[in-house]
């Protein structure tokens, strides 16, 4: 998952993101971004995420852990 931060930053339309960043605090955070993350992780890592799981993961690092746990 070496490009994870770059990929997620792109989906969030941010220059740079850190693992401790809170997902909800990003300006672009909404249902469409969540769907983009679901589609992205399905395509790149073959995982199926739900909106609830993504919201519960709280941070960028939490999201990474969620995806890694399903791979």
């Amino acid at each position: 998952m070496k490009d994870f931060l770059i990929d997620i930053a792109e989906l969030l339309e941010e220059e740079e993101i850190k693992e401790e960043d809170i997902l909800e605090d990003f300006e672009e955070w909404d249902s469409l971004t969540i769907l983009s993350i679901i589609a992205f992780s399905n395509e790149k890592y073959g995982t199926a995420l739900s909106t609830i799981e993504i919201n519960d993961s709280k941070t960028v690092g939490g999201l990474k852990k969620l995806i890694a746990g399903k791979m």
Binding site: S31, L35, I38, N42, A48, S50, T51
Partner: peptide
């Protein structure tokens, strides 16, 4: 439930 529909269709 948009997320579940998406996952169902892709699966």
């Amino acid at each position: 439930k948009g997320d579940e529909v998406f996952n169902f269709v892709q699966r």
